[in-house]
Design a protein around this nucleic acid. Structure first.
Lengths: 239, 239
DNA sequence: CGTTTCAACTTGTCTGATATGTGACTTCTG
DNA sequence: CAGAAGTCACATATCAGACAAGTTGAAACG
């Protein structure tokens, strides 16, 4: 006979559940103001701490947003928080993360080649132009923008949001990679060329071609990123 | 003269930042116990509410976990929370989600075919045996277990965790699909056969074969899931 | 030595007081 | 009358004290 672990559910968790349920059911939609803490206390017949705890947790989960003096409001779908607590990933995690990125981006680019609308192409072209015009310092930003534009063109919003999460997580660790790029014009040139190739394939609606171009691009980036990492590792070891 | 916007940063946010910083820097690692609330109050010279607020937010973000009577602990990478506020996906979102699942699983199975260890094969075999032995009611559970076993064999923990998140999100909406399965023995038979094929390919280390087998399997599932959905939709419309 | 009891420490909850931010209404002033 | 300034109600933010409830480990006991 097995026993299920009995966990006395805390009051704040019950409150949390009720609020989530209300949001789920649509009683409170994005942007709506929830009842004030006092009101919730009265209607739920619990102390302020419990309500506050529940709301604070929900704030942490990104479901609601509190504004002092105004109230508590339901926020929209905010996927940037998905990977937010993956702080400063180590090299192994970074490799795993990059592998996920490869998987997502190579699939995304195939979808984008099929589903891309005119305005998607315009948006992508714009980011490419920005990249060639701007200073090297901002290349990392525009690089990211290009990839996000592709994701948007894929037509799958979840994919887009997932990639965004991963990119922002990697961005912290990619910082030194981008500074490496900025210092080597030939890298920028290569990457620029690869982007153009990907762009062309998407324009031609050539899914497998786009896939291949993306694979090449990411392999290139990974190779140079590893190089940058090993340099940093050596540097750390010699301290 | 320009004025900088003075945004009175809340005390709890400052506390939160400090704690996050400490975790980032590695002063507190996964599983470590943070100082008690009282201690943090004393060392930070703020009230308990502020500390509690910070910790509760962190709890919501999934960075820490509090256990009454024990303390507050730094949690590991917990991606189950990623999709947690994706509440009750509608059909369109469900399609997007399934697409993501296809992308992930077809890639996972390729990795698994290459990286699988002996014990991974044993674990997979075990879930398959369970599935054929057990009652139809539990088929959904064991089906999920099989897919997770493959993900584990891929060797990429982030992929594994992502798939877990997606599966749990879809599970709610898949409930009626599984009951549909349970009512049709021929579906179970087909699925079982497909699983065996995938298993074989992984055993043979045939990555592309495994990929193809998974693709077939998921297409099959998707087809019947859509059928289930349209039935439900019609049912709803006739109410 | 094994068991029970208990004290110390933890988070969870309630409560009241005070601080601070926001918005709407009123009042003052030109 | 119109705009600026003051006022007030109400919201969250913070503090502090008390007690509830869960966990742990050591002391006391058989």
């Amino acid at each position: 006979m097995e026993f299920k672990r009995i966990s006395s559910q805390k009051i704040s968790e019950k409150v949390e559940e009720q609020i989530v349920k209300l949001i789920k059911e649509g009683s409170y939609k994005e942007g709506d103001k929830l009842p004030s803490v006092r009101e919730l206390c009265d209607s739920l017949d619990v102390g302020r701490s419990a309500v506050r705890d529940a709301l604070t947790t929900l704030k942490g989960r990104g479901l609601v947003e509190t504004r002092q003096g105004e109230g508590t409001f339901v926020t929209g779908f905010n996927p940037k928080r998905y990977f937010q607590h993956m702080l400063m990933p180590h090299q192994k995690e970074l490799e795993s993360l990059f592998q996920v990125r490869e998987i997502l981006e190579t699939s995304i680019v195939k979808l984008a080649a099929v589903n891309r609308k005119e305005q998607d192409l315009i948006a992508m072209r714009k980011t490419l132009n920005h990249m060639s015009e701007c200073q090297y310092d901002d290349s990392g930003y525009h690089d990211c923008q290009f990839h996000m534009a592709i994701a948007k063109a894929s037509g799958n919003s979840i994919l887009q949001e997932l990639l965004e999460s991963i990119s922002s997580t990697m961005a912290k660790s990619m910082a030194d990679f981008h500074s490496l790029i900025a210092s080597k014009p030939e890298l920028i040139h290569d990457i620029h060329h690869q982007h153009e190739l990907i762009m062309d394939m998407i324009v031609c609606e050539d899914a497998s071609g786009a896939n291949e171009a993306m694979l090449l691009h990411l392999s290139y980036v990974k190779k140079h990123m590893r190089k940058g990492f090993s340099i940093r590792s050596e540097f750390i070891e010699t301290i």
